[in-house]
Design a protein around this nucleic acid. Structure first.
Length: 476
RNA sequence: CGGGGUGUAGCGCAGUUUGGAUAGCGCGCGUGCCUUGGGAGCACGAGGUCGCCGGUUCGAAUCCGGCCACCCCGACCA
């Protein structure tokens, strides 16, 4: 079976799609722009959910669920918000065989219906802060879709919080951005650049939007998470006021923040290779697979016995598998599990049994190690830790190698013509320059990195004074 | 919405130019044998409204008209 993956170097886009399909993360669905998330892909999402949800709970948030359908009038209450979302909404006009009194929008995001509800929940400063998260699906009618990266329907979480003061809401915005950064690096092994979005790129309805930006292997940027300070925009649109300790009515200050199944696409594009998926161990549904090798019935019995005993001792029983399928030779199985990104393969055959050892193979480097049978489990565990760190280190080195300061427009243009990565360049702050650069180079301002020091310079496009460098890149 | 491409078995394709009898091939799938240290082998077998609708014709996967769907590339977006 010619089960090869299109090489990255030949066609990056095909390579990505091949991996998603062949590793059985997702399938195309009968509806345009929609996908089926297969069990293996969904398992990865469940692991992400668990990690994120624990972090949300640890920072005081509770989960709730709001409706899928949003009355048209709600969406229209916040002017900027409706301008941003109306064009990409699916609208239900009929129900029960009859036209509806008021069309219902399928949520593209839930700010409006949530703030309509918060109005009834918030009356006093004692009701604040209100810290709620929701796991759900949303629909955005995109022109062009790609598996995980941009689909018409996707799964995500959206946090929606209400605070008494601007200061507290701003601090929540930054706190959750940091949760995302920590998750991306610590769990996904994905180094990111946290920063503030420009006026042009921010969320419709926000005062300020922050993002974490990751670099894919084609050196394009992918927005991996967002956190918004919404100011009092939604509080005013939905009339959400509280009485402060002095008895005065005040509008609350809001935030919202989210990450989506797009992160699975980021995972694929950041770490995988021409053999298939590479998963950071912390997100791998199967951490290790044992491939038994036998010659005849006698060795088969012994080898399988040893393999099953090893698996039975593994501390996370569901995360290890013995591939005892008949009719597939070991080489076939090696390729199969590499395709699916299982971090550690354990080869166990008659020769190993003779030597009381196993051969452990790392998915990320292909390195083969002989390990005494008795040390196999602790060694696999330590290997997983080494791989988690190794994958992050490799991704970080890649990001650093393709990020650099650029000061002249000639060099800037050439850098982006060759798709060379992240450019830190000065920008005067004008939307015109931002737009010109995008038209001329396809690079956009991904964000203004939080780490960017105050450093006077001149705008790379127009030469006007600039206070700091911003991050320019071609983006997904 | 513009440009390009593709619709024939679960997947990948041939056949369409030049209409003709039972629509083929590889992989996968089922059964049996054999095999297993990097994608094995043999045998038998199951599996099709040729994307849809209409037309031309004695006869259409093939020609004509219309429609639909999906993929890739661009403009919008997480």
């Amino acid at each position: 079976m010619a089960k090869s993956i299109t090489p990255r170097s030949q066609d990056y886009s095909r390579w990505y799609t091949d991996i998603v399909l062949r590793a059985e993360l997702a399938d195309y669905a009968p509806v345009k722009g929609c996908m089926v998330i297969r069990p293996y892909g969904y398992s990865i999402w469940e692991k992400m959910q668990r990690e994120l949800d624990d972090r949300f709970k640890a920072t005081g948030h509770l989960n709730a669920y709001f409706p899928l359908f949003i009355p048209e009038s709600f969406l229209k209450k916040e002017a900027e918000h409706v301008k941003g979302f109306a064009p990409e909404c699916a609208v239900v006009t009929h129900g029960g065989g009859k036209p509806l009194e008021e069309p219902l929008y399928v949520r593209p995001t839930s700010e409006t219906i949530i703030w309509n509800t918060y109005k009834g929940w918030i009356h006093s400063y004692r009701d604040l802060p209100l810290l709620i998260n929701q796991w759900c699906n949303v629909v955005r009618w995109e022109m062009r879709t790609r598996l995980f990266l941009r689909t018409t329907e996707f799964l995500w979480q959206e946090g929606h919080t209400a605070h008494a003061t601007e200061e507290e809401a701003r601090s929540e915005t930054m706190r959750m951005l940091e949760v995302y950064r920590d998750f991306a690096e610590g769990v996904m092994a994905l180094p990111v650049v946290p920063g503030r979005k420009t006026e042009n790129e921010k969320f419709a309805g926000a005062v300020e939007t922050y993002s974490i930006e990751a670099m894919m292997q084609d050196r394009h940027a992918l927005q991996a998470g967002t956190s918004h300070y919404l100011g009092q925009n939604f509080a005013k649109a939905f009339d959400v006021q509280y009485q402060d300790a002095g008895g005065q009515l005040q509008y609350v200050h809001a935030t919202s923040w989210g990450v989506s199944t797009r992160l699975i696409g980021a995972l694929v594009m950041a770490h995988s290779d021409d053999q298939g998926l590479v998963l950071p161990p912390k997100l791998a549904p199967i951490e290790a697979v044992i491939v038994p090798i036998w010659k005849d019935d006698a060795t088969k019995t012994l080898v399988l016995q040893a393999a099953r005993a090893l698996a039975a001792d593994y501390p996370r029983r569901l995360a290890i598998r013995v591939d005892d399928r008949e009719g597939f030779n070991p080489g076939w199985k090696y390729n199969e599990w590499e395709m699916r990104g299982v971090p550690v393969r354990i080869e166990l055959g008659p020769r190993d049994l003779q030597a009381q050892q196993v051969v452990a193979v790392r998915r990320d480097t292909g390195e083969k190690l002989k390990v005494p049978l008795g040390d196999a489990i602790p060694r696999v565990t330590s290997l997983l830790d080494e791989m988690q760190a190794g994958i992050l280190k490799k991704a970080k080195a890649f990001l650093d190698a393709h990020t650099r300061p650029i000061d002249t427009y000639a060099e800037f243009r050439q850098f982006h013509e060759t798709g060379s990565g992240f450019a830190n360049a000065h920008w005067c702050g004008s939307a015109d320059c931002e737009k010109s650069v995008a038209e001329e180079t396809k690079a956009t301002i991904r964000n203004i990195p939080l780490s960017a020091p105050e450093q006077p310079g001149r705008c790379v496009r127009c030469g006007q004074p600039s206070a700091r460098r911003v991050l320019f890149a071609q983006a997904y």
